Amino acid sequence: MSDYVFTPPAQASIAVQGSQQRLPIRRVFCVGRNYEAHAREMGNDPTREPPFFFMKPADAVVSALGTVPYPPLTEDLHHEIEMVVAVGKPGVNLKAEEALDVIWGYGVGVDLTRRDLQNVAKKMSRPWDWANGFDASGPCSPIVPVERTGHPQDGRVWLAVNGEVRQEGNLNELIWPVADVLAYLSQSVALAPGDLIFTGTPAGVGALQPGDRVTGGVAGVAEISFTMESRPV
Rank of each mutant, 00 (worst) to 15 (best):
R26Y: 07
T74I: 02
V165F: 03
L100V: 09
L191K: 12
Y106D: 06
V205Q: 05
N170K: 09
P145F: 10
P51I: 03
Q20P: 03
R26N: 15
T47A: 14
Q20W: 01
A86P: 13
G105K: 12
R33T: 01
F226N: 04
W158F: 14
I103W: 09
R231G: 03
F198E: 04
A179S: 15
A136Y: 01
L208R: 09
I224C: 05
G211T: 06
V165R: 15
S141Y: 02
P9F: 06
M1W: 08
G32W: 00
Q20E: 15
N162Q: 09
A58S: 15
V108I: 11
R27H: 14
I81G: 13
G138V: 01
S2V: 09
L117W: 14
R166E: 04
I224L: 15
Y106V: 06
G217L: 12
L191N: 11
E80F: 11
L159K: 10
I25V: 15
L65I: 14
V110R: 00
T113K: 12
D76N: 15
G32V: 00
V120F: 03
G91D: 10
D45A: 01
D59M: 02
V146Y: 00
M1R: 12
L171W: 04
A183W: 07
T113Q: 12
G194P: 09
V146S: 14
Q21S: 14
